[in-house]
Write a protein that binds this DNA or RNA. Structure first.
Length: 384
DNA sequence: TCTGGGGTCCTTAATCTA
DNA sequence: TCTGTAGATTAAGGACCC
């Protein structure tokens, strides 16, 4: 079998680059996309001119403004972003039929076997970059490797406008000097935990056995670290998995103590969740409330309904019940959010009126069924 | 410095059930 | 019918990603 080749495309400073493209007066200026100064929020992305000031994504907007008051601060331009994103995916589909968008500005493409049709990986990579530039007037960074992990790290290696190709026999040399925080699933918390144990680079991580990593970091994380240190990762590119939840949340500009404002906000959020769910033809049994209080203290409360729903008032009522029966309902609220999840059908139950003789099978909550059939049944068992 | 919004996945503990 | 137990399910919290 021929070598697997996965290409990862990552757009350069995507939201900011769109603004600079559409308004030439912004070219060469620090452009910061995210919340507006004076409001609560963070930087979503920023132009390379803004990065000179030490600004980066996820930085509080107040801090960004302190560092660069002369910057141009804008909210993301949703329609322009979606349009460019669509063009990028269509362009990539013109190169390979196997394209997996992972976000608005990133995609994986399986280019295995295209070498005979198009040329070696560097020719394929340059072609992708060139066609994306022609379609969108935007620059991208491309990485090509034997699997998704290596392709993604390769696209990160030379930004902006980079093209990096890592062949299977170059993977070790590519990975070894990297800091542990470059790995998937290793954020601030895990990186600190690894460093406390003397693991700063992937080369050191590689010296740990799988058993030892599992013992320290748990089953899933331990296995993942072990595999990543060896450059082992999925090379499957396919359709994006269907979504598992729908949620909406709102952060108040000042912590909210007014129950009526909270109620009204939750009503609007619930309506928004319900609208999205109906549009996508989804109904959920799980309702989850999210609260963020003063001091950034975050709590969730969830419940399972007897029947799946996508109705505004059902979502709101359950959300409000979770809130008003929680221990937090008298505290100032920074953020409130509500969501639905669990698209599974109600549990199937068998009803018996004689021992071992099934009378009827139906779907629903056990309590509802007992209430409906009462004493006329002998027992209920979960359907096999 | 003071931290959005919309998601996914993992871990742990409590509870339910076969 | 009672009881102990293993496995499944539910709920909550947290890390992480884009």
């Amino acid at each position: 079998m021929s070598e697997r080749l996965i290409m990862h495309i990552d757009m350069d400073a995507f939201f900011a680059a769109i603004e600079q493209r559409d308004d030439p007066s912004l070219v060469g200026k620090p452009v910061i996309i995210g919340a507006l100064p004076g409001k609560r929020g963070v930087v979503s992305t920023c132009s390379y001119e803004a990065r000179v000031f030490g600004i980066h994504s996820a930085m509080p907007i107040s801090e960004a403004f302190r560092r660069c008051p002369q910057g141009v601060y804008l909210k993301p331009n949703g329609p322009a972003i979606r349009e460019a994103s669509h063009l990028i995916v269509e362009t990539l589909r013109g190169i390979s039929p196997v394209v997996e968008p992972v976000s608005v500005d990133e995609a994986y493409v399986d280019i295995s076997g295209l070498e005979r049709l198009i040329g070696p990986p560097d020719v394929i990579g340059r072609l992708a970059k060139q066609r994306i530039r022609e379609a969108t007037r935007l620059s991208s960074s491309v990485g090509i490797g034997p699997n998704r992990l290596i392709a993604k790290l390769a696209s990160d290696a030379h930004k902006p406008d980079g093209l990096t190709i890592i062949r299977a026999d170059q993977v070790q040399a590519f990975l070894y000097p990297m800091p542990v925080e470059n790995m998937r699933g290793v954020g601030k918390h895990s990186a600190e935990s690894l460093k406390r144990r003397g693991i700063h680079t992937i080369a050191t991580l590689r010296t740990w056995s799988e058993e030892r990593l599992i013992a320290v970091f748990g089953d899933a994380s331990g296995r993942m670290l072990y595999r990543q240190a060896r450059g082992i990762w999925s090379d499957h590119v396919g359709e994006h998995e269907s979504r598992k939840s729908i949620s909406k949340e709102h952060t108040f500009n000042e912590d909210c103590c007014d129950p009526e404002t909270l109620r009204q906000t939750m009503l609007e959020l619930a309506a928004d969740v319900a609208r999205t769910a109906r549009r996508e033809g989804l109904t959920g049994r799980g309702i989850r409330l999210k609260l963020r209080l003063d001091g950034f203290e975050t709590h969730t409360r969830s419940t399972t309904l007897a029947h799946p729903t996508n109705l505004d008032d059902v979502i709101f009522k359950e959300g409000w019940r979770l809130y008003s029966t929680s221990a937090f309902c008298s505290r100032p609220v920074r953020l409130i959010g509500i969501g639905i999840f669990d698209w599974s059908a109600p549990v199937q139950l068998d009803l018996f009126d004689k021992p071992n003789e099934r009378k009827i099978r139906l779907a629903g909550a056990k309590d509802d069924i007992v209430a409906r059939f009462g004493k006329s049944i002998l027992g209920i068992k979960k359907a096999k």
